[in-house]
Structures are given as C-alpha cells and as structure tokens.
Design a binder for these strands. Structure first.
Lengths: 239, 239
DNA sequence: ATTGTGCGTCTTGCATGCATGAAGAGGACT
DNA sequence: AGTCCTCTTCATGCATGCAAGACGCACAAT
C-alpha cells in the first residue's frame, strides 16, 4: 500500500521538519546546491520542495536571490496565534460533539499522562505530550481539512513556541487549562470547550507581555516588509 | 518596485485562477506538456507551479500519474465550510475592534452597493460585489496572515459556491445577513459580529440540505480516499 | 574617507535529455 | 466470453546544461 514518495516530497518533509524542530532557524539561507549535495540529488527536486514550502509559508523565495527560512516578527507571530486560537477552538467544539467513546478514552489517557509529566517537571518532555494532547483533539473534530490546517499553522509557529513552556509556572497553568477543556469535552459542551480552548491558545493578559518579551528568541530576521533581511541578522549560510 | 515574477509563479496564479473561476473543473487532468505548450514554456516551471498548487490543496499530484484538479466530495466541502465560518468569524471579530474610520466608510459603501445589486436581481453581479464585501472585512481585521488564510480557503471552495446564490431568495437573505453584520461591526461589538458572520457563512438548517442537494454540480470526482478518481468521472484531458 | 562605477563570480531560472514506471492494447489461455 | 499476461507507448521524475541577473570586490573619482 505504501504509496511511493518522490524525492521532492521527502525533501519537503525533511526541510519542514528541520524548520519546525528549530534546526533551520528563521533567516537561514537555503542553498539549492548545498541541499542537493546534502541529500544526494540534483537541484531539481530541491527546487520543487522549496516551492512547496514557500507555498505553505515556511520559506520565502525571492526571485534570483534564493530561499530563506521565513522569519516572523512579533506582529506576525501574534497574528498566527489569533488564527491558531480559533482553529483549535473549532477543533474542541467539534470534538465535544463528535468524539467516539474510544477517542474520549484516549483523550483521558493522554491528559493523565500530561498531568504526570507536568508534575515530573521537565518542560521539554511535557511539550511532546502536550502536542499529542492537542493532536487527539484535532482528530476528535472528525474534520480532516481542519486537522491539516490546524497542524500547518501549529508547525509554522513551532519555532516560536519552544521556550514558551520554560516560563515559570507555565506548565502547571497549561495542564490546568487542559483539565478544564477535557471536562467540557467529556460533558459534551461545545460552546464551553471552544471558549476554553481559545483562551488556552490565545495569548492574553500577562501571557502576552511575557511572550512578547521572551520572543525573538530564534534569531528572527524580520524579512518580508523591509527589504533588509541580511543586514542585521545576516542570513547564516546553511551548512 | 514591481518585483519580477518568475514563470512558475505566473503559471501558479493562472492555474489557480482557472480553478477558482471554474474553467478547470475538479477531476480535470493537468498535463505538463500541454500546459507547457499552452504557456509557451518548458515543463520545468509548469511542474513547479503544480507543486505549489498541490501544497495549497488546489491540485493533487499522484506520483507517476500526473496532476488533477482536486475534487472535493460533499463531506470535504462541508469540512471546509466549517473552517471558513470560524475564519470569517474571526475576521469580523477583529474588524469590529480594529477598522479605521476610512475602512468603516468603505464597508458601508460596498454594503450599499450590495443592497443595490441585490435589488437589481442578477446573482452573478451580486456575487462579485459580495466578494468585495467580504474582502473589506478581511482587510479590516488588520491581520495579514488571517487575510491570506481566509482567502485561500475561500478560493478552494469557490468552484462549489458559484451556484449557491442562484437559489431562490438566497441573495436577499445574504444581503440581510450582511446588514446585521455591518451593524454589529459599526457598533464595535466583536462578539456579535463574529457570531453573525459565522452564521452567515455556516450552512445551517435548511441551508445545509439545500446546499448538499444542489452540490456536486462541478463534476466532483471524489478522489483522495478511494483510489478511483478516473473510473467514474474519467479525468477529462485538458485542452 | 566615502561614494560611484565596472568587472568577475556565483546562484538562480529555465530548457532539454534520459530512465523508470504506469496505462492501454493485443493476444493467449482458461 | 472473460481473465490474465505481455508488450508497447507515453508521461512523469530527475539529472544536466546554459544564460541572465544579483552580489561582492576592486578601483577610481570626488
């Protein structure tokens, strides 16, 4: 069954992964030849992969000037968070109505695991389980398009979220908010589930200023509006 | 200033336009060579354009089997409408808080024009102005990412919306709903604006059954899950 | 010292060539 | 007759080649 995957798709996934995982930092130049050599192919599939990533907003291709990992400034990140909040909110709303008993059990299990890891204290380990928690809810929406869309926005934001949980008390707060969401979901209350999830994702009140001040951690070369992107945070040549 | 546009970008825009405008119907085969000839280029930029469109969900590329315009089945269309509703809802919410006086004036002008055209009676003419109405609200959100995202989903749905307004009384209803939204926007009531917009976009109650029964108008070759897509609505070879 | 000009180098954008794998036609066999 | 198999044909996936545009540097002029 395993449908054959073309090189360009493999490359696109690999590069997207590099970006999401923070191995390719915003502003980093993606040289076609270098990538081609790195992956042992010609430039053609590399170019196709870059085009795909560009179409999804992960990289920016300036004609005749090559591709760089998109660097979002504070404003753009906040914009994406606004989107993320409603998408995840919709996931929760739909999940409240549509999750099967098996999915509900799954949710509870993952949530319990989250609680356990939160108590354990390592934010990075918690982060992984936190991701799974949200994934369960995406799936629970029974809306594939929404699932993909939400995941895509999440991935675009991921370089900027890594450190979010390292703030003091953030993990505990996160898991508490999860708890509220889970309750609403299991009670089948779509309105409350949506509203709670939106609050959970949205950066509000203190969270906002905390986030903004901690942001620009991944050397965010602001690039699109000002035609600089190479003046201050000089596009590091990728290995 | 006019930044140079590469062939592949031109092609991508042209093809997306063909799809949105219904000139390229769902299920239609997009032959690389034919397109290359049609646009007077080699296959390379055509391939890159197709990859971009694939990354955005407009076409589907099955390895070694070429690209086809994505055909959405009823379920997928409804899924996208669910997304669309919250995205447009968010636009309205943000617009209610953020629109400048000039933008508000713009909104009123376009709305008035909508009312005029609705009374005039031609659904297709109204459709164009209706699009502008929504665009004004996208812009009013002052959230570029949201604007693009919403427009993208809208475009994906456009082949399936064309006939929606041809239903008896739909135009009148649409313009009435606009009126409610406008009122909430101008009063600066984000909650109401969002909620009204969600209802406006969402297909609910009668709207749903009406829509579903009228759907599958563009010969929607359901393709992704079942590996057929070529059995019933045989991929028409594009000119 | 700073700014403007010209050249050289390099990367990108696109064209072309070739091999692999898929769809279809035709025939043999059940 | 229907089914399976083989062979042919052809489109796709990828590699390579080539020209144009961008960047950097040196040098000259102010």
């Amino acid at each position: 069954m395993a449908l054959p995957e073309t090189r360009s798709e493999q490359l696109a996934r690999a590069l997207e992964d590099d970006i999401c995982a923070g191995r390719a930092l915003p502003g980093m130049r993606l040289d076609e030849q270098v990538l081609a050599q790195r992956f042992g192919t010609s430039r053609t599939p590399v170019r196709e992969a870059l085009k795909m990533l560009a179409a999804q907003g992960f990289v920016e291709i300036r004609p005749r000037q090559g591709a760089v990992v998109v660097g979002l400034d504070v404003r753009q990140v906040l914009e994406l968070f606004e989107i993320m909040a409603v998408l995840e909110g919709l996931c929760a709303r739909l999940a409240a109505r549509r999750m099967t008993p098996a999915e509900r059990a799954d949710l509870m299990a993952v949530h319990a695991e989250c609680q356990r890891l939160a108590a354990a204290g390592d934010p990075d380990v918690y982060y992984a389980m936190n991701t799974r928690f949200h994934e369960v809810i995406y799936a629970g929406s029974h809306n594939r398009q929404l699932e993909e869309e939400t995941r895509r926005v999440r991935n675009r934001l991921s370089p900027y979220r890594r450190n979010q949980l390292h703030q003091l008390g953030r993990v505990a707060k996160s898991v508490q908010e999860h708890d509220d969401v889970v309750r609403a979901l299991l009670e089948g209350d779509p309105d409350r589930a949506e509203s709670l999830m939106r609050r959970h994702i949205g950066i509000q009140g203190d969270g906002l200023s905390d986030f903004v001040s901690n942001m620009s951690t991944p050397q965010a070369v602001s690039n699109p509006p000002p035609a600089l992107a190479g003046t201050l945070g000089r596009p590091t040549i990728v290995q």
